[in-house]
Design a protein around this nucleic acid. Structure first.
Lengths: 113, 113
DNA sequence: CACCTTCCCCTTGTAAGACAAGGGGTAACA
DNA sequence: TGTTACCCCTTGTCTTACAAGGGGAAGGTG
């Protein structure tokens, strides 16, 4: 399913990190979480998800560990690091502020206020 | 001033088109409008703005015409086409829906609802 | 006069990152 | 045995924000 790449950018990391808030999840479960929590409006390509997870690990925002899934399959579990928690909070706030500003701009009704 | 490119993506076209809602503006005025309307939180690089305007013109969403600015300078005025209006409405709605979904996802408090 | 600032336009190169389209492998079940 | 669901990954392509440059003309100031 095709998303708008320009919309996904800037929220992808946030959503991934958020999905790991409570417990470690493997990649497949992360994508399921995102799909569920957005009522199916955001379907994550695997070619998008996995590189993103690797980037986040590279930055030290998540940690990976091989394990076994509920379905008895080899799976790589990602967990939020301390740095990842902080990053999530800051970036979520910044994202909210930005989208708020844009929403206001798009709602302007008088020319050149 | 450095923005977060990942946030700008997906809102840039929207903001530009919105600025042209009432009357044709030249590029410089578009960037001023955006800066003003976002309380200075979004400063548009010229190397971002002008290519974006050209892309929008290429897609037939805006039309360009050379004119003279209030300050007596040569300036290229952009105006919204019919297609541009429609695009703005649709994409603004889609953007709002998407950011809403993300906002909800980021506000989730229970694990895996 | 020379100089500076403001206004106004543009281009090139770089880097990031979403996506399409491939790949592989294992468990469970019909 | 075949099929489906689960789970991981990579490569190449394309878009596009940004940095860093370019130029030129108007109006003011020293």
């Amino acid at each position: 399913m095709a998303q708008n790449p320009n919309l996904v950018r800037g929220t992808l990391d946030l959503l991934i990190l958020k999905s790991l808030t409570w417990e470690p999840l493997h990649g497949y479960a992360v994508s399921e979480w995102i799909e569920k929590v957005t009522d199916g409006s955001l379907l994550m390509e695997e070619g998008t998800l996995y590189p993103a997870l690797h980037r986040l690990a590279e930055k030290g925002l998540v940690e990976a560990e091989w394990g076994l899934s509920e379905n008895n399959r080899r799976a790589k579990y990602y967990s939020l690091t301390h740095a990842g928690k902080g990053y999530l909070e800051r970036e979520a706030a910044s994202w909210a502020a930005y989208t708020n500003a844009v929403a206001k701009a798009l709602a302007v009704e008088s020319p050149i206020p």
